[in-house]
Amino acid sequence: MAPTSAPAIEVRNLTKTYRDANALDGVSLALEENRIYGLLGRNGAGKTTLMSILAGQGYPTGGQVLIHGRNPYENDSTLARICFIRESQRYPDDFSPHQAFKAAALFFANWDQELAERLIEDFNLPTRRRIKKLSRGQLSAVGVIIGMAARAEVTVFDEPYLGLDAVARQIFYDRLVEDYALHPRTIVLSSHLIDEIANLLEHVVVIDKGRILLDEDADTLRGSAVAVTGNQDKVASFIDGYRVLHRDSLGSLASVTIQARLGATQRAMAAEIGLELSPVPLQQLVVRTTMSAQAEPHGDHYQEALK
């Protein structure tokens, strides 16, 4: 593939205002080509609004979105490189999955019928039944299959797992890694189930109330915080000077999550005074960051502190 100077997805100061609320409030991002991004955040944080503008389906109130350097809105040649299936995607009422896949094969130049058929088998999807009559999980499977078999350069999944059971979700993650390994592309995955997808992500973007809270490499984030547990006085003296993300206590026992990369000496010191240090999984980290940002008016500290 020819190297391009423009990032796969570039978002500049994007705002989207609905009558009563700011869905997006000055969002800027640059997502590189051929990486898997996680777009995380609470319900109503602005994830779907952002994704639908990225895909040229929605349009911004202000700011700009560029896909490989071009505005996707009403631009067929750029749109042809994108695939975005909504969480509650609607299909023609009388379509069967088979017919939906036939349509997708028309529009997505890289469509892989073999992959589609393999996924149909994996998900046990009845392809000749009307989509209207499918269960929620089967409906999600239709979207997942289109999103994956389309092999679009920019593939966006909005909570693709709704109604899928644990086994089906695992199949989705497995097939995604396999196919991505052979056919790299830019993938944006939005999800609540952070711990399930955490290992797949190369980069994490956390959005809250229409603003970017975190935009960081997943592996940089992992290990950027630590939970200190032990006697509350000792914990208090140990964590002095660190930014606290979360605090729990039980009697005289305290467990405090701090944002810190501890060195060997600090770890030894903690052990010496009987404090237990435990790593914080990505999911916890995202939850803690979101919660502590909501407690404070400006949520940019974490981002800056990481730099």
Partner: peptide, 17 residues
């Protein structure tokens, strides 16, 4: 690295790293 990625279900770029 792709085999590692698929086996451990992790991002291939991370495996490569």
């Amino acid at each position: 690295t792709n085999e590692f990625a698929v086996y451990y279900r992790i991002n291939p770029a991370t495996a490569a790293k």
